[in-house]
């Protein structure tokens, strides 16, 4: 697997971009400045970053309720995302979707999704369109360990396999479906084992190692582009925050959280890049400072943007 230094620095940048964005959303939510509720991706940045780094603009993704990271990694604009999360008219969805429904079809982002397991069948549909049109694009379905147990996910994997659709199922196993640990929600340890049932490759990777994710998804994407059908990549990870902001996390103990914070996917990459002389501490700081500026611009844009007019309420129900 060849990967250039520039690509690795780009991944480092994307992961930091997600982390900074999510941290800011966390603060805004705590201050009561964001309506509704939010599910943060902090700690899982390596998965969206590594997976989307293998994709082209024309490729599609379906995302989840914990979708901000996927959107950023697929090229989402922080301004339009933050404005949407604020419920502003200038947001990706004109304030009609919010955190759980951000979409940018023009970037191949077929939506975050408020329904656990909702994305798999839709990813198949996008892949079917690629296959039918003879395009070598792929669809990536991000889904969690919770969604892994939904019937829709099994149906989607079966159909993708039966039709050899160019789909990559990227499972983000963060150990909990809200409060329910995977040890209680399934009898197996590795979700990737289910791939065997659909005669597709099933690979387990360290979801906190962006290069491992990149490598596994790259191979799956290659197969998909070449007509060899779908794959399932299970990325073991952990969410540092609760299921949603405000979750008291009574179901897990602080030592467990801390053990995963110590496996910070961003620090892991940063140390590796510094050891290899690819990324200096100065460069790293420069990247973070530039991202902070971009984020502040996004925040300012969201804050200054108007709320939607109530006249728009009934618009866009039908084409």
């Amino acid at each position: 697997m060849s990967i250039t230094n520039e690509q690795m620095i780009q991944m480092f940048t994307t992961m930091n971009k997600i982390r900074q964005f999510e941290t800011r959303v966390q603060e805004f939510f705590a201050d009561g400045r964001i309506p509704g509720f939010v599910h943060l991706y902090i700690g899982e940045e390596a998965i969206a970053t590594g997976a989307c780094a293998t994709l082209r603009k024309e490729d599609c993704i379906t995302s989840t309720h914990r979708g901000h990271g996927h959107l950023i990694a697929k090229g989402g604009d922080l301004k339009l995302m933050m404005a949407e999360i604020f419920g502003k008219k200038t947001g990706y969805c004109k304030g009609k979707g919010g955190s759980m429904h951000i979409a940018a079809v023009e970037l191949g982002i077929l939506g975050a999704n408020g329904i656990v397991g909702g994305g798999g069948p839709i990813a198949n549909g996008a892949a079917l369109a690629f296959q039918y049109r003879g395009q070598d694009n792929v669809a990536v379905c991000f889904f969690g360990d919770g969604a892994a147990n939904q019937g829709t996910t099994q149906e989607a994997m079966n159909l993708a396999s039966a039709w050899s659709l160019p789909v990559v199922f990227v499972n983000e196993n963060n150990g909990y479906g809200i409060s329910c640990p995977t040890s209680k929600s399934m009898a197996i340890t590795d979700i990737a084992d289910r791939a065997a049932a659909y005669d597709m490759p099933g690979v387990v990777v360290d979801g906190n190692d962006v290069l491992a994710v990149y490598e596994a998804v790259s191979e799956a994407v290659r197969r998909a582009r070449e007509g060899e059908g779908p794959s399932l990549i299970e990325c073991k990870t952990y969410r540092w925050r609760g299921h949603f902001e405000g979750d008291a996390c009574v179901y897990r103990d602080e030592n467990e959280v801390q053990s995963w914070v110590e496996r910070d996917p961003i620090r892991k990459l940063e140390e590796k890049l510094q050891e290899q002389g690819i990324l200096s501490p100065e460069k790293s700081r420069e990247i973070r400072d530039a991202l902070a500026k971009e984020l502040e611009a996004a925040v300012a844009f969201a804050e200054e943007s108007p709320l939607p007019s109530v006249d728009e309420l009934e618009e866009d129900v039908y084409a």
Binding site: L110, P121, A123, N124, G125, A127, F130, A156
Partner: peptide
């Protein structure tokens, strides 16, 4: 298709989102 209504409707939805 297989007997898999969610996957049928979802495949139609995704393909339609792509313009088919």
């Amino acid at each position: 298709t297989p007997i898999t209504e969610s996957a049928i409707v979802g495949a139609a939805t995704g393909a339609a989102a792509m313009g088919m």
